[in-house]
């Protein structure tokens, strides 16, 4: 029983972080319909950057984290400005593959600057575990879930009330119409990329507090694709609901299936979910089914 509760809590917490990273994907997809496959690498590089700031440059937290956020903002702007702006109105295949090129490039940058493959962030949260009934959960999970939820709330408010947020939703709805209304669509695109990078950076820091900084962070980013797929590509609410579901499946499945099938089943569950969802409900739980005309 304690086991079940523990898997459930850690699963939901990790799932919240997945949901956060997936939100970054949905942001870009909604505003510019570009599928950002470099998500994992964005998570990886911003976690390493945090490591560089906090451990290698020995900055205090109050300086290190804002610098990371600034770095993520700059990275997002740079990617949009240099690689995606010239490709506006190109076929979808080029848009997807250019993010693959970015992914490859960022991976090279990471191995170039940080050749050690494993590192740990300094302890950000108190160490003593929390007792929730019979389960013992380390505090990082709780904090990760709380921070993700908080950010999620903030972002929803931003989309609801801020001028830029409204512009972003409008761009997602109809690019031509919004251009005619005088909204600079290109700056909406770069803002969405900057937001996505920041969200990926925060998600990366939260995940690397739990599991350390490894190459596995790329897989974390790829796993959040399963959140996007299950939730439906163009739905924010889908992310927040599908995230914990994926986290639960991963942790419960990992916990109970490992003795039956073998170690490592945990890492493959989100990908199996992708295939299953694809075959049976390709537009996800909340996704909008596109009807095409010729």
């Amino acid at each position: 029983m304690a086991e079940l509760l523990q898997y459930t809590i850690t699963g939901i917490a990790v799932g919240m972080v997945y949901a956060l990273i997936a939100l970054g994907f949905a942001l870009i997809w909604k505003s510019s319909s570009i599928a950002n496959l470099a998500l994992g690498q964005l998570v990886l590089i911003s976690s390493w950057f945090t490591y560089g700031m906090l451990v290698q440059a020995k900055f205090p937290y109050w300086l290190g984290f804002p610098l990371t956020i600034l770095f993520a903002l700059f990275l997002g702007w740079l990617i949009e400005r240099l690689t995606l702006r010239p490709l506006i109105a190109q076929p979808i295949l080029s848009l997807i593959t250019v993010t693959l090129g970015i992914a490859y490039f960022l991976e090279g940058v990471v191995t170039f600057v940080w050749p050690m493959s494993v590192a740990a962030l300094p302890r950000l949260f108190p160490q003593e575990p929390v007792h929730l009934g019979p389960a013992v959960v380390s505090q990082e999970y709780i904090w990760a879930a709380v921070v993700s939820l908080l950010l999620f709330g903030l972002l929803s408010l931003f989309f609801k009330y801020h001028k830029m947020g409204i512009a972003m939703r409008a761009t997602a709805d109809d690019q031509l119409a919004i251009q005619a209304c005088g909204v600079p669509v290109t700056s909406v695109f770069s803002t969405s990329w900057m937001f996505a990078c920041v969200v990926a950076a925060i998600g990366g820091v939260l995940i690397s507090c739990i599991g350390g900084i490894t190459y596995g962070l790329v897989e974390t980013g790829l796993k959040s694709f399963s959140v996007v797929i299950l939730g439906g590509l163009d739905s924010f609410i889908g992310c927040i609901i599908a995230g914990p579901i994926i986290g639960l499946c991963e942790n419960l499945g990992g916990g109970y299936l490992t003795p039956l099938i073998g170690p490592g089943i945990k890492d493959i569950i989100p990908f199996i979910i992708i295939i299953v969802v694809m075959v049976f409900k390709p537009y996800g739980l909340f996704g909008e089914k596109r009807i095409e005309r010729i």
Binding site: Q90, G108, V109
Partner: peptide, 15 residues
């Protein structure tokens, strides 16, 4: 690191 960087760059530039 140099290999992936070069290939990524080549892919992006060609596109």
């Amino acid at each position: 690191g140099i290999g992936p960087m070069v290939f990524g760059l080549v892919i992006i530039l060609f596109l």
